[in-house]
Design a protein around this nucleic acid. Sequence first.
DNA 1: CTTATCTCCGTAGTCGACTACGGAGTCAAG
DNA 2: CTTGACTCCGTAGTCGACTACGGAGATAAG
Lengths: 142, 142
Amino acid sequence: MSGSQNTSMTIGSLAKAAEINVETIRYYQRLGLMTEPEKPLGGIRRYDEDALARLRFIRRARWLGFSLEEIGELLKLEDGTHCDEAKALGERKLGNVRDKIRSLQQIEGVLDQLVEECCTQKDNVTCPLIASLHEGFEAVTP
Amino acid sequence: MSGSQNTSMTIGSLAKAAEINVETIRYYQRLGLMTEPEKPLGGIRRYDEDALARLRFIRRARWLGFSLEEIGELLKLEDGTHCDEAKALGERKLGNVRDKIRSLQQIEGVLDQLVEECCTQKDNVTCPLIASLHEGFEAVTP
DNA sequence: CTTATCTCCGTAGTCGACTACGGAGTCAAG
DNA sequence: CTTGACTCCGTAGTCGACTACGGAGATAAG
């Protein structure tokens, strides 16, 4: 919705915009995560905002520990897969994502407490990180 | 705090308990993520619950997309690093974790909506995944 | 028209994180 | 005291995810 003029980039400017190596984009194309746009008669391919959004999504998802294969599945959800199939997949992925959130929140809690208490306590040499981990850490999936 | 009898395992049973390959444990030891316990005079090393908790933590953190190097830093927080140093590190890591949580929550929201709406809408062929991504996805770090 | 800077595409190399191998030593059960 | 399963330890191989290379063609600026 917001104003964008530069629909249509070369792979180079796309790479710069997404902060991803050109070679990596080409690698993703080979894997089928990105589609190669048509090449105009021995010319140079052009990319649009969708390609950019997709790349950013991939980058973010990688950062969150999803494999390229899993990311492929996530992306299939927005490409016209058959609906019920997509729904099932989406639900699985959603569970996955929620597990990760829960795990991260546990780590967050522990870290937060750690930072709080860190310099307050003097006698307890071992910080309470692992101790806390013992308790709350059997619940979630990995 | 809870009752545990089997303090003292061999590397094999430790591996089984943590659901991690023996070789992987040895690899972590080489990297310094796990310490090798003393070997009793040409005998066999023994591991305790702490080692197990540590391994589980590593596994979980890996699953959440942290590199072994980052995990090393997280673990340093509970080994007696100097406090202010640890605190700074902890705060950085905390920010990191919170970014991940936020990212995952965005994905969660999008996936959730997707699953909801998936079979309801008929005319809109492209599911709203990427569309939503466009909007909310500039905020967080990766 | 030239020159610099891309793009294209295939192939090869790197890096992090494992995973396997193999031979010598250890231990527990029978 | 043997046998089978396991440990120890060094080295080597694999796999996923990039990253680099190099030569031929395209395009834009001067």
